[in-house]
């Protein structure tokens, strides 16, 4: 199979998957909840208007916590549902490699979350209306948020392949993601730095979604942050593949 064939197969899986999101009412519920939570945290917890700052830091800072619960909810059905319906057998006996199937499904879910993220654009309009914000940090904030969502999603995709129960997948994925967020959460790192050597604290916080997300919000595109997110996604999707290969039993 040539490169074009490979691309077409991924695209077919991607298209089906994305359409199935928007065919289901759950997708719209998800988007509405995502937007409501964003608005609630930004305006009522961070008091966006009282801050008097024309930037979106108070908006982005909540994303890791919102994703922590919403992204696993999107990801939990990815494979668990296919396993439950028996369509896993259908798709894996079509001329599709496991890699193509994983990529197609993952990308569709990622784009779906991306659409939800794009729908927060009124926030951007608001800060531009109120003042003259720096475009750099805002763009980087969105990019960082999208990459972080991809990392959350890859964890959820992996746990979804482990089980046919969406609930189990959801819980597992929230627990794993919680660790990955907390490893860089200032209250946790400050406790650690009380007794652990500096290199260890740095090592732990470097594994966290949060550390890399915060560094991107400063408006600087650091290659290490990009590399970090893509490594997490690649690693998790590889584990996803291994799990799928080894758990094909009915």
């Amino acid at each position: 199979m040539g490169k074009i064939g490979m691309f077409n197969t991924v695209r077919a899986v991607f298209k089906r998957e994305l359409l199935s999101y928007f065919n289901a009412p759950v997708a719209y519920v998800f988007i509405v909840i995502f937007l409501l939570l964003n608005g609630f945290f930004t305006f009522f917890i961070s008091h966006f208007f009282d801050l008097g700052q024309a930037d979106l830091r108070s908006f982005f800072q909540w994303h890791p916590w919102i994703y922590l619960f919403l992204v696993p909810a999107v990801a939990m059905r990815l494979w668990a549902e296919e396993r439950r319906l028996g369509t896993l057998e259908l798709i894996l006996t079509l001329p599709v490699t496991v890699t193509q199937a994983i990529l197609g499904k993952f990308l569709a879910a990622w784009v779906f979350i991306g659409v939800a993220l794009l729908l927060t654009f009124p926030m951007v309009l608001t800060v531009f209306y109120l003042g003259q914000p720096d475009l750099g940090p805002i763009a980087m904030g969105y990019l960082g948020s999208f990459l972080m969502a991809g990392a959350f999603l890859s964890v959820g995709a992996m746990t979804s392949a482990l089980t046919r129960s969406q609930v189990v997948s959801f819980i597992l994925s929230v627990v794993i993601c919680l660790f990955l967020v907390l490893a860089g959460f200032p209250p946790v790192t400050s406790v650690l730095s009380g007794w652990a050597p500096v290199w260890f604290v740095d090592l732990v916080s470097a594994t966290s979604f949060l550390t890399h997300f915060l560094s991107m919000q400063r408006g600087v595109l650091d290659l290490r942050d990009l590399l970090y997110y893509f490594s997490v996604i690649t690693f998790m999707l590889c584990v996803n593949g291994v799990v799928l290969q080894s758990r094909r039993t009915s």
Partner: peptide, 11 residues
């Protein structure tokens, strides 16, 4: 044709 004829129900 797999057993129980699985088909994506939402399509």
């Amino acid at each position: 044709l797999p057993e129980n004829a699985p088909v994506y129900p939402d399509m």
